[in-house]
């Protein structure tokens, strides 16, 4: 279970998060929605322990991670897998080295066993015979899928998705959505996705949370969001430029 408790974060004088509270149950798929620059990525990085909040705390299965030393935090991080917006593949390593990176670092598996595991994970995301390619040889969609294979290589309990469909064509975006749903059923991981893609959010989320003005404005199921009368939710779901949410 992930508990986000009263998280505040500022950059210089800009207050990005002003007291975010959110609980994500074990096995649940939570989608955090919000416009560009509302602090979604910041929230995800705080959950992962990549950024320290100014105030508040994060509990992962009851363990408070904000004040953990690097060594202890890394033990917690082994429970996580993360898909980055741009995939963040290591461009000096081949596809199999990227996907098998965590296994090489944290397990005593032989190179052959790791390669087998990598092939298996690549197959799970619908990729074959690309183990020896370099990231620069892959298309955007393939990079994202390799990133997803790397995120699930260690069989994580929690998967974080940073804008999983951004920058992809609608068909590839749907492929990624289907993969996320498939992974949810296959490895039963808790997942947190941040996005502003409503199609993706409705498809992959058990519950949606709307981040607005530095706080979680509303939490609900996709159905509740679709039929919400809340003007902020309404405007975000319909993608209208008219309403309480202003651009910029």
């Amino acid at each position: 279970m992930i508990e986000v408790v009263d998280i505040h974060k500022s950059f210089n004088s800009h207050h990005v998060l002003s007291g975010v509270n959110l609980t994500i149950e074990k096995g649940e798929s939570m989608v955090v929605l919000g416009g560009s620059g509302t602090g979604k990525s910041v929230l995800l990085k705080i959950i992962m322990g990549l950024l320290k909040p100014d105030q508040g705390t994060i509990l992962i299965d009851g363990t408070e991670i904000i004040h953990l030393r690097e060594e202890k935090l890394n033990e917690i991080r082994k429970k996580f897998g993360m898909l980055f917006q741009g995939a963040a593949l290591f461009d000096s390593l081949s596809v199999w080295e990227n996907v098998g990176f965590g296994l090489m670092e944290h397990t005593s598996l032989s190179k052959a066993e790791i390669r087998n595991r990598v092939t298996e994970k690549l197959a799970m995301v619908g990729l074959k015979n690309i183990e020896d390619k370099m990231p620069s040889e892959l298309s955007g969609g393939m990079k994202k899928r390799v990133g997803l294979a790397r995120a699930i290589a260690m069989n994580p309990e929690i998967i974080l998705y940073d804008e999983p469909t951004t920058g992809l064509d609608p068909i590839m975006a749907d492929v990624i959505n289907e993969l996320i749903i498939k992974l949810k059923h296959e490895i039963h991981a808790t997942s947190v996705a941040i996005t502003h893609d409503m199609t993706s959010a409705f498809k992959i989320g058990d519950r949606l949370a709307l981040l607005y003005q530095g706080v979680i404005h509303r939490i609900g199921t996709p159905e509740e969001f679709k039929h919400s009368e809340d003007p902020v939710v309404r405007q975000f779901v319909t993608g209208s430029s008219v309403g309480p949410i202003t651009a910029g």
Binding site: L50, R77, F84, L89, H106
Partner: peptide, 18 residues
């Protein structure tokens, strides 16, 4: 620098590597 702006350094941290 490129690794930083393309989030590869963050990716290392997420893979529990310092």
């Amino acid at each position: 620098g490129t690794m930083r702006v393309t989030e590869q350094i963050d990716a290392l941290s997420t893979l529990a590597v310092n």
